[in-house]
């Protein structure tokens, strides 16, 4: 689609396969609850077989992983999960139940597939928003937000999605994404009257 995606060179592709095999072996070892030569060996064999037989199209990683920002993202995610779960549980118990929702569009600054997927996943996991549709080429996510019947709540919901995007770009975005992040630090007030 976009001609500016980083090229998948042979080197990148090999490293990617290696990373995939490593995580599969890790999963195998964890399932068997034993770190022995036998389990690692069988894990490697099975991982190689699986990645050959069920060949997935390569995901273009950006090659950048900032552990600090990833930890920040993880902590914010857990906090937000708990907070939003309590909020939605409160909706279920209170008298008024829930009002109208909204389908909002969030114009993301990144256009990378992996980041869009992660943002959509995170937004879906945090109770209160569900990803309904996406426009991959334009980089727009459409989410349904629970109990969102005023402009203020729409703004809050969009701000949360942009915050997720910012945290993820800082954690594992490419340099282009980082530049886009710097160029548009506050997408709520950037475009005239968005949100």
């Amino acid at each position: 689609m976009s001609p500016n995606r980083p090229r998948m060179t042979k080197g990148r592709s090999f490293v990617q396969q290696l990373v995939l095999v490593f995580f599969l072996v890790l999963l195998w070892v964890m399932l068997w609850d034993s770190v022995s030569l036998l389990s690692i060996l069988t894990g490697v064999i099975l991982a190689l077989v699986v990645t050959r037989v069920f060949y997935l199209p390569p995901v273009v990683l950006s090659g950048r992983f900032n552990i600090m920002h990833a930890a920040v993202f993880g902590l914010w995610f857990v906090y937000s999960l708990v907070h939003a779960s309590v909020e939605v549980a409160w909706f279920a118990f209170r008298r008024r139940a829930v009002g109208a929702g909204s389908v909002i569009a969030c114009d993301l600054r990144t256009s990378s597939d992996l980041l869009m997927t992660l943002i959509a996943d995170t937004a879906s996991l945090i109770p209160g928003s569900i990803i309904i549709d996406s426009d991959r080429a334009l980089g727009i996510l459409y989410l349904h937000v629970l109990d969102c019947d005023s402009e203020e709540k729409i703004r809050t919901a969009k701000a949360q999605v942009y915050h997720i995007e910012e945290l993820l770009i800082r954690a594992l975005g490419s340099h282009r994404d980082l530049a886009a992040l710097r160029a548009i630090p506050d997408p709520m007030h950037q475009h005239g009257g968005e949100g």
Binding site: L81, V82, S85, V88, A89, F91, A92, F93, A97, V98, G101, S124, L125, P127, G128, I130, H144, L146, D147
Partner: peptide
């Protein structure tokens, strides 16, 4: 809370918000 949400919320999309919660937290 999830099951109550399933019963009380008005439309399908709202109920879905309620149902996903216990699966995560």
């Amino acid at each position: 809370a999830a099951a109550l949400g399933l019963l009380r919320f008005g439309d399908l999309l709202s109920r879905m918000h309620a149902s996903a919660k216990p699966q995560v937290l």
